[in-house]
Amino acid sequence: MWEQVADAFDRWREGRAPADDLVRLMTPVLWHVARACRLEEEAARDVLQTVWLALVRRRGEIRHPRAVASWLITATRREAWHVRSATTAAATTQAQVFEDSDWEQLLPPAPAAEAVAVERGEHAALWSAVQTLPERCQRLLRVIAFDDRPDYAHLSQQLGMPVGSIGPTRGRCLDKLRLALANATTGDR
């Protein structure tokens, strides 16, 4: 095939024949090259048209007829990359204008930054206050804080206390925690 391409190019360049044979032989190859660069069909057609026009303008620069196939493939690949990067750049620079109501659909609901900051401050204060409690209270409150319905039998074994004293101990620990939090907030003023 490459010999046929070289011969068709040579005949066309010398004016002995139209470029029809050259176009017929190379267009399917160039089409695949352009489409391999992920161009849409219309953009690929434009690339091929640009490359054929460039060949018409530069046919005298190709010294060896056997080089025309490589020249066409390289020119197609470069033009396809150029078109692809220009298309990508244009798509990324186009700003889309949204109304406030559009944002509600596009963004997941989230609390305001101020609310998040306040919540984090409260969490930090709470856990700082927990750190001031006796170890037994800290362990009990951590379990209760992260488990809706703790298994009292298992908790009894972990903490080394009778099942019946877990509830009253929890109450005393919560009272100590309230006092520690109250002291922390009055101490900040």
Results as ranks from 00 to 15, higher is better:
residue 1 M to N: 08
residue 1 M to W: 10
residue 2 W to S: 08
residue 4 Q to H: 04
residue 6 A to K: 00
residue 6 A to I: 03
residue 8 A to D: 00
residue 8 A to N: 00
residue 8 A to R: 01
residue 8 A to V: 03
residue 10 D to F: 04
residue 13 R to T: 00
residue 13 R to Q: 04
residue 14 E to P: 03
residue 15 G to A: 06
residue 17 A to N: 03
residue 18 P to G: 12
residue 19 A to L: 02
residue 19 A to K: 03
residue 20 D to W: 02
residue 21 D to P: 01
residue 22 L to G: 01
residue 23 V to F: 04
residue 23 V to Q: 02
residue 25 L to R: 08
residue 25 L to E: 06
residue 25 L to A: 12
residue 27 T to H: 07
residue 30 L to Y: 07
residue 34 A to N: 08
residue 34 A to C: 08
residue 34 A to Q: 10
residue 37 C to Q: 14
residue 38 R to C: 10
residue 39 L to D: 05
residue 40 E to T: 13
residue 40 E to W: 05
residue 40 E to Q: 12
residue 41 E to Y: 09
residue 42 E to Y: 07
residue 45 R to G: 08
residue 48 L to M: 08
residue 50 T to V: 10
residue 53 L to I: 12
residue 55 L to I: 05
residue 56 V to P: 04
residue 59 R to S: 04
residue 62 I to F: 02
residue 63 R to A: 15
residue 68 V to E: 01
residue 69 A to D: 00
residue 70 S to L: 02
residue 72 L to Q: 02
residue 72 L to M: 09
residue 73 I to T: 01
residue 83 V to D: 04
residue 83 V to F: 05
residue 84 R to W: 07
residue 84 R to L: 10
residue 93 T to A: 06
residue 96 Q to P: 00
residue 97 V to W: 09
residue 100 D to K: 09
residue 101 S to H: 11
residue 101 S to I: 12
residue 102 D to Q: 13
residue 102 D to P: 09
residue 104 E to L: 15
residue 104 E to W: 07
residue 104 E to V: 11
residue 108 P to K: 12
residue 109 P to T: 13
residue 113 A to I: 14
residue 113 A to F: 10
residue 116 V to S: 09
residue 116 V to L: 15
residue 117 A to T: 05
residue 118 V to F: 05
residue 122 E to T: 05
residue 123 H to M: 13
residue 124 A to T: 12
residue 125 A to M: 09
residue 125 A to K: 02
residue 126 L to T: 12
residue 128 S to L: 05
residue 129 A to Y: 01
residue 130 V to T: 03
residue 130 V to A: 02
residue 131 Q to L: 04
residue 135 E to A: 06
residue 136 R to Y: 03
residue 136 R to C: 03
residue 137 C to L: 03
residue 137 C to E: 00
residue 137 C to G: 02
residue 140 L to Q: 02
residue 141 L to E: 00
residue 142 R to N: 10
residue 142 R to C: 04
residue 143 V to R: 11
residue 144 I to S: 02
residue 144 I to T: 04
residue 147 D to I: 14
residue 149 R to F: 13
residue 152 Y to W: 11
residue 160 G to V: 05
residue 163 V to I: 15
residue 164 G to M: 10
residue 165 S to Y: 09
residue 167 G to P: 10
residue 168 P to E: 13
residue 171 G to H: 15
residue 172 R to L: 10
residue 172 R to S: 11
residue 173 C to P: 00
residue 174 L to D: 01
residue 176 K to D: 03
residue 180 A to G: 04
residue 180 A to D: 03
residue 183 N to E: 14
residue 185 T to L: 11
residue 185 T to R: 14
residue 186 T to K: 09
residue 189 R to H: 11
residue 189 R to C: 08
